[in-house]
Write a protein that binds this DNA or RNA. Structure first.
Lengths: 198, 198
DNA sequence: TTAGTAAGTAAACAAACGTTTACTTACTTT
DNA sequence: AAAGTAAGTAAACGTTTGTTTACTTACTAA
């Protein structure tokens, strides 16, 4: 039998992310995607059941999956608290700077009911993803270095400002003056650490 | 001439917010909206030029505008820092608990290029909206009570965790155990204040 | 009271949508 | 080398999209 052309699969995914980042999820159509990826619409349906299936897999496997991998690089749940948080922040910032297109779909995950459903189905919110980060937080609560909060609250304090700053970084890159710099990121990271310490 | 029926205008806007919250922005069509609001499609086009115009006005006037009003209730830029931050947090939490449908479109503002463009056009990101909050932050930087950061960074540290916690609150309300309570919100607020204090 | 007018309706428009049908291509296996 | 098969294409399917056309309604002002 004729073998799959992996380049086409890759093109479909990366061009989808590009369209989502530039024109928005609401402007991504299967026909537009097929044309932009230089592929017949049918080709997309070989691998994915339908549009919903495609978007969920793109979101979970491509975006969340690769982000998790990047965040956890050289991260250890038993690191000193400040060091661990800094690692998470610098890893995240580097990742999105290098993979700008991934950020847009990540943000849609917080808005779209479709992707939200996917989140819940896969149990991401329960700790299947980013498990080492949760271990890290639980470890430091037990050791008494940081304040005790529900896991969801820790995650909100740790990740939400970071993602917002990355958003700000992207919105200003086209402008004359870049406001979100490594220095500002580092200062904010210190503020988050200070807030969580006992 | 025949006078406008203000109830219809109101129905169009509130049902649009409901559809966006329940089915997502990508599933809001003008025909579906018209039918749900018990109105002819043409009626929507009396007031709004097209779909884009409608969404932008819904976002700016209805959502951002009314949120700003709620946040600033009994807020004074010269309040003590901790008191001011607590006021912003409790005002926000109360507002979204009472206006659950508004939250979804607010979140889309961070994803959709359409709404992002609207943000920039209106200069929201530059301080036209939430001006008293910016005055408040600048005041406390000058007074030396909090660390100095670009306005965008202050806003990220102050609002991003709050909005993420509200998101978490809504996602869990249907489940047996409510994790985001007033107590958790208050603890997180304290952490944010502590992080920003010098 | 009636003429004028904007609000509002129902039905329709072309264009675009997600998906499928009918077919061809390019490789593996025997 | 020829048969078998999944990958892949081009064109089309019926629906739904955003928006408009042609018309009616309900009120104001003269």
């Amino acid at each position: 039998m004729r073998p799959k052309n992996l380049e086409k699969e890759e093109a479909i995914r990366s061009i989808a992310l590009q369209i989502i980042a530039e024109e928005g999820l609401e402007n991504l159509s299967m026909q537009k995607l097929a044309k932009a990826a230089n592929v017949s619409p049918r080709t997309i349906y070989i691998k994915y059941e339908n549009k919903e299936d495609f978007l969920i897999k793109l979101f979970i496997d491509e975006v969340i999956g690769s982000y998790e991998k990047a965040v956890l690089e050289k991260f250890d749940p038993e690191m000193p608290f400040a060091e661990g948080v800094k690692k998470i922040w610098t890893n995240s910032f580097r990742y999105f700077k290098e993979n700008r297109h991934y950020y847009a779909l990540m943000q849609y995950g917080k808005s779209s009911p479709l992707l939200n459903k996917a989140y819940q189905q896969k149990g991401i919110r329960e700790g299947d993803f980013f498990a080492p980060v949760h271990t890290f937080l639980a470890f430091h609560v037990k050791a008494g270095t940081i304040i005790k909060l529900p896991m969801e609250a820790h995650r909100a304090l740790l990740f939400a400002p970071l993602l917002d700053l990355i958003n700000e970084y992207f919105e200003h890159t086209a402008r004359p003056k870049q406001v979100i710099t490594d220095k500002v990121l580092a200062d904010c990271c210190e503020a988050v650490i200070k807030g969580l310490l006992k």
